[in-house]
Design a protein around this nucleic acid. Structure first.
Length: 893
RNA sequence: GGGCGAAUAGCUCAGUUGGUCAGAGCGCCUGCCUUACACGCAGGAUGUCGGGGGUUCGAGCCCCUCUUCGCCCACCA
């Protein structure tokens, strides 16, 4: 792999072959006995049916940057990939496919359906992992897991049975969230609340004895068919006399009692609440307290069932609502309708309005699991980035509710519970078992396994240890648990992150990771989340195809500050990915130019005599040193964007714009010292490439392999991370070459201002040159001549004739005689203007320094600094005025 | 209803403990195809740092308040 670089940067041509090579070399394979301190990152397992989207791209890029950085730092860096069986999501996908054949899952039956899903998963599932490869992800693919694999299933079962034994899993009849489209229960977290403008109907319920009526307010009139009471607040004087009396429930032949309950808010609505125990969690509790009857009036798909009067049966809940309201109106029992803003819960998978439903489900008692998880946060064992996310975490744990884990689905881990039915002549025993049961352990009669499966998250909350072989005490488990950092989106903080922490503490006694980096979301220019339905998504594969994975990665990383979103314009990929695309192209050309001059004979920096180093050499080495410190610090703080920006600046501005320009004559052989320049250039490019490698792995590898001293068949991704001392700190070189840059900049600005033809050479006089400038010019005069196209260069007094002038911060006066190009009056006006500005600054500065409050209270260092500033400005202003006078004076001669 | 966050150049955002902090990238303007790169080079313009008050010798940076967005949580039917 050492052919010369192609003239054109073609990411497609380098990326895929490199990835294949890394895989073949098993660079990211991490056995348990791998050297180094462990650093483990668990990839948030994408849904097995998922297609790569921008969110995956961002999430996995960030993880890859972190893992590559830590790997190069000598850690035993392991990144564990996997996929999630994604119960509801996957089942929905396959059901849709079936629907195209005109079939439902009930038509083909459970066994055939599950087979069908497996076939689908084997056929198309997991392709997202292939897509991740295009990003350059350096995970250990040999460890790829699937949450329905036998070993992870075993862990799931072990956890279920253990928690059950500990009394932390129970079954019971409660109001749960029910999705009438998916036909399953959902956990609280799986319901997305959405504020919506709704209505609230005030309905008249007549007293049974005809002596009056009571008005109830409801947002869901259709549920009145299931009412079994009306509740008022015990201390509400309006209704005190009615407590205990009976009402006739309209549209039905039922009589229901009026009860008093603290749960009622007297101020809201009419102060009287209709109680529907089967269709509302609060009502369920009220019903329990007052022993009210329970009327479930809906089918699983949210139609009115046979318990309601015939004319309502079969009606969808929203149809039924209209019908009920209409009938109340006809009967003159509709008092009023008001608009009302309230939260509506929707299924997070299909967006259907969730129905509170009374049913038998399995739950995990969360309080005992939440307490240690909260303690781990409070005592600092967990760290959130951004920090404020920790409050979210704590708040959720403090108000935790039991977790409904059973799902009425077919795709997932079947609940390991077997019933010995009494109707079948059995003993009625319920068996919770680690192994499949064929017969009742008690009476040896036939058993029936629970029909339900477990919530998808009941397997993914275990992956920090189940992916490492648990419940076996494997070498992997010892070597890689606990992990170091979790990188994910805040959306799954409760679904996944918090639960992993609870499971980790409960089953392993340690938090599964220490740092939780919750990154932002990729959004469009209107700040909308990218989604398929909005059609505003960016396809990472298309971006990779057009600009390369490196360009995608750099753009994402550089746009991602901790705690912020990344905004990209899906309609303008060119503009969106310009930063990464431009930078990658620049790097390619830096490589093409520099590597073309380097060869096997290029000396190592260590073999270059100190005395041979020019100021420019020392300067770029000092810049490299500073960049090593900066980038290492920023990556270490997960400020990946700041780290990336620092390398960007080093490679583009310092190396390409200045150093490479400076050494050209030495490279071309028109000046001596070529070998030294090559050695320095090779050295700092090597450092820069290492620092950039975590962000742009492909192009850095490509260039690095062509550096003179890179071992053959080696990879930059397993090289050592640069450390301070790899280059060298040199404040003097920074200052002196900085002065050269200032002088050149001043000349260029003058040239531009006076429209000096690009090829035209000018003369230069440096008056009042500071010591730093003098020292710098003594050794880099040629650089100034060449980069600013200067002919004669002299230190001393201003020459005769019209000239342009710039006064540098250190007082050095840069004078470029420009003859006819200069309009003396204009130049004087310009200089005078600048002088006036400076004099203004000096005056305000002097006022400040004359203020005893400031001089006494501000730290001496600050005061001294302000004094220096004032002096420097004053000197500059004087120099400007002086130049103006000199200009007019010379003009007269 | 509660909690949290954000408002800085045309756009997307940095600005970590108050004293060169008014910055970067993209876009824009001017001039250049200078034998690595026009996805480039050189130069340049642009901001009462959301409004108002306050603390301080000194405030994008701290406090109060208002306005506008966003996120999370929530059993007032």
């Amino acid at each position: 792999m050492t052919e010369p670089l192609a003239p054109q940067y073609d990411p497609a041509a380098i990326e895929a072959p490199l990835y294949a090579r890394w895989q073949a070399q098993q660079l990211y394979r991490v056995p348990a006995d791998h050297p180094g301190e462990p650093y483990v990152v668990q990839m948030p397992p994408p849904n097995v049916t998922a297609v790569l989207h921008a969110g995956h791209g961002l999430n996995n890029t960030l993880q890859d940057v972190i893992i590559r950085f830590e790997r190069m730092r000598g850690k035993r860096a392991l990144w564990v990939p996997g996929t999630d069986h994604a119960g509801i999501a996957t089942q929905n996908v396959v059901e849709k496919l079936l629907a195209k054949e005109g079939l439902t899952r009930f038509d083909i039956g459970r066994e055939a359906f599950v087979e069908r899903v497996w076939a689908f998963v084997h056929e198309t599932g997991g392709s997202i992992l292939k897509q991740l490869e295009a990003l350059g992800t350096s995970c250990d693919w040999e460890r790829t897991y699937f949450t329905l694999d036998a070993d992870l299933s075993r862990a799931v079962r072990e956890v279920f049975v253990t928690l059950h034994e500990e009394g932390l899993i129970y079954r019971g009849k409660y109001i749960i969230n029910w999705c009438p489209r998916c036909l399953t229960a959902l956990s609280n977290e799986e319901v997305e609340k959405e504020e919506a403008d709704g209505r609230i109907w005030h309905l008249n319920y007549p007293l049974a004895d005809g002596s009056g009526h009571l008005v109830v307010a409801t947002t869901r009139p259709e549920t009145m068919l299931g009412d079994s009471g009306v509740a008022v607040h015990p201390a509400d004087p309006r209704y005190a006399h009615l407590i205990g009396r009976m009402l006739t429930l309209p549209l039905t032949d039922r009589t229901i009692p009026i009860v008093a309950d603290d749960a009622v808010e007297a101020d809201f609505g009419s102060g009287a609440v209709k109680v529907t125990p089967a269709h509302d969690p609060t009502d369920f509790e009220i019903g329990r307290r007052h022993d009210l009857a329970v009327f479930d009036v809906m089918t699983d798909d949210a139609r009115m069932n046979d318990t309601v009067p015939e004319r309502f049966r079969g009606l969808d809940r929203f149809e039924a609502r209209k019908r009920v309201v209409a009938e109340f109106e006809e009967l003159g029992l509709l008092v009023k309708v008001e608009t009302h803003r309230h939260a509506v819960g929707r299924c997070y998978r299909c967006d259907t309005v969730v129905e509170p439903k009374l049913s038998d489900q399995w739950f995990v008692r969360m309080q005992p699991l939440a307490e240690p998880a909260l303690a781990a946060y409070r005592d600092g064992r967990l760290r959130f980035l951004p920090e404020r996310q920790g409050d979210n975490y704590a708040m959720w744990l403090e108000n935790i509710r039991d977790w409904c884990i059973s799902r009425q689905l077919w795709w997932g881990h079947r609940i390991p519970v077997w019933y010995c039915d009494t109707e079948g002549g059995g003993c009625g025993r319920t068996s919770v078992s680690r192994t499949d049961l064929d017969a009742c352990p008690e009476c040896h009669g036939p058993v029936r396994q629970d029909e339900d499966v477990l919530d998808t998250w009941f397997s993914s909350w275990l992956v920090p240890f189940s992916s490492l072989g648990w419940p076996e005490e494997t070498a992997d488990l010892k070597a890689f648990y606990p992990g170091a950092t979790l990188v994910t989106a805040p959306e799954i903080l409760f679904f996944w992150v918090a639960r992993m922490i609870m499971a980790g503490l409960h089953f392993r006694g340690e938090v599964p990771f220490r740092t939780i980096y919750l990154h932002g979301t990729v959004r469009d220019t209107q700040h909308r989340k990218m989604s398929k339905s909005l059609g505003n998504g960016i396809d990472p594969l298309e971006v990779i195809d057009r600009y390369g994975a490196d360009a995608l990665r750099y753009t994402l990383v550089s746009g991602m500050a901790v705690g912020t979103d990344v905004i990209l314009d899906p309609a303008d990929l060119d503009a969106s990915f310009a930063p990464g695309r431009n930078f990658a192209n620049k790097l390619w050309n830096i490589g093409r130019f520099l590597l073309g001059h380097l060869g096997p004979d290029t000396p190592k920096l260590a073999d270059v005599a100190e005395a041979d180093l020019t100021l420019a050499d020392r300067w770029i080495l000092a810049r490299a040193e500073a960049t090593v410190v900066e980038v290492t610090g920023q990556y270490g703080k997960f400020r990946l964007n700041d780290g990336a920006a620092a390398v960007y600046h080093f490679l583009w501005s310092d190396l390409a714009d200045w150093y490479l320009e400076q050494i050209k004559p030495r490279l071309y052989g028109t000046q001596p010292g070529g070998e030294t320049a090559k050695a320095v250039a090779a050295h700092v490019l090597d450092l820069g490439l290492r620092l950039l490698h975590p962000v742009m792995p492909f192009i850095t590898e490509t260039l690095w392999q062509r550096l003179p001293h890179s071992p053959a068949d080696d990879s930059i991704s397993v090289q050592q991370w640069p450390v301070p001392g790899d280059a060298r700190a040199d404040a003097q070189a920074l200052a002196e070459f900085g002065a050269i840059q200032e002088v050149i900049g001043a000349i260029r600005a003058l040239r531009a201002e006076y429209a000096v033809a690009p090829g035209q050479r000018v003369n230069l006089t440096l008056a009042d040159a500071s010591p730093v400038v003098q020292r710098a010019i003594a050794v880099e005069e040629e650089t100034v001549r060449r980069l600013a196209k200067v002919d004669n260069l002299q230190l001393g007094a201003a020459p005769a004739g019209a000239s342009g002038t710039v006064v540098l911060d250190d007082g050095t006066v840069v004078i470029v005689p420009l003859g006819d190009l200069v309009d003396i009056d204009k130049e004087c006006a310009r200089l005078g203007g600048e002088a006036t500005k400076l004099e203004g600054l000096v005056r305000s500065q002097e006022a400040r320094l004359a203020n005893p409050q400031f001089v006494d209270r501000a730290p001496p260092a600050v005061v001294a600094k302000e004094r220096e500033k004032a002096a420097a400005w004053a000197a500059q202003a004087i120099a400007l005025r002086e130049q103006c006078r000199a200009l007019r004076c010379r003009d007269q001669n």
